[in-house]
């Protein structure tokens, strides 16, 4: 599902965020990406989202070579990748329902189908009774769950999560992780960037570790 071959990313400032990274994440896998801040986690995520282009090497997602993707094809690619952000990135000018419905509206679903899918996603994150409220009134954990519902409402084969539990207490974090595991069990490939070692250890998943832009560890924590 995710293939990096010899991928380097050098920013115009000269900073090399990733250098010659090789990795392969198969379908149905759930993988953690760790490393100190500045190790290149975000850059790796951005390359998958096509928010950045690699300076060298190839990124292939779901069999599609991103290097060959033209600007016009980027939106279609992003619809295949669900993203959960650390700061939720919710819109406070509309209610929970509309926040979750955004990817479906973009993809052009009819309103009945949108209602069905949004409710299913909200049900999944146990927020069905909150669809009419403004997300600003929700707690941090609830906002994050709205963000997750939005990321999965379009049923993407790949889900990225950038520090999804960064601002949450351990109990809420565990709850969020349980959700990710459930999605993984129905076949969604999941890549979670996190530096919460305790949490990662508890989840018992494959771990990719970055340090100064290089992949320094790939395997299960022992």
């Amino acid at each position: 599902m995710i293939e990096f071959s010899n991928v380097s990313k050098r920013y115009p400032t000269g900073h090399e965020a990733l250098s010659r990274v090789n990795l392969n994440v198969g379908e149905d896998e759930m993988v953690f990406l760790t490393g100190h801040s500045g190790a290149g986690k975000s850059t790796l995520m951005k390359l998958i989202m096509l928010m950045e282009r690699p300076s060298a090497g190839q990124v292939v997602i779901g069999g599609r070579n991103l290097n060959r993707m033209r600007a016009g094809q980027i939106p279609l690619h992003r619809r295949q990748v669900g993203v959960v952000f650390q700061n939720h990135q919710l819109l406070f000018d509309r209610n929970v329902f509309e926040n979750v419905a955004l990817p479906l509206r973009i993809a052009g679903y009819g309103s009945r189908e949108i209602a069905r899918r949004v409710r299913a996603a909200l049900d999944k994150v146990s927020l069905l009774d909150r669809e009419k409220v403004n997300p600003i009134t929700l707690s941090g954990g609830e906002q994050q769950r709205v963000g997750i519902a939005r990321a999965v409402v379009n049923k993407p084969p790949l889900l990225l999560a950038d520090e999804p539990t960064g601002n949450l207490d351990p109990e809420l974090s565990a709850e969020i992780m349980k959700l990710f595991r459930q999605f993984n069990e129905v076949g969604v490939t999941i890549l979670i960037a996190s530096h919460d070692v305790e949490l990662i250890r508890a989840m018992d998943c494959r771990v990719l570790s970055l340090s100064q832009g290089q992949l320094v560890y790939d395997g299960f924590l022992v």
Partner: peptide, 11 residues
């Protein structure tokens, strides 16, 4: 709103 829309695949 524009940034988020573009992130979730808005053309």
């Amino acid at each position: 709103e524009i940034i988020i829309t573009k992130l979730v695949g808005g053309s």
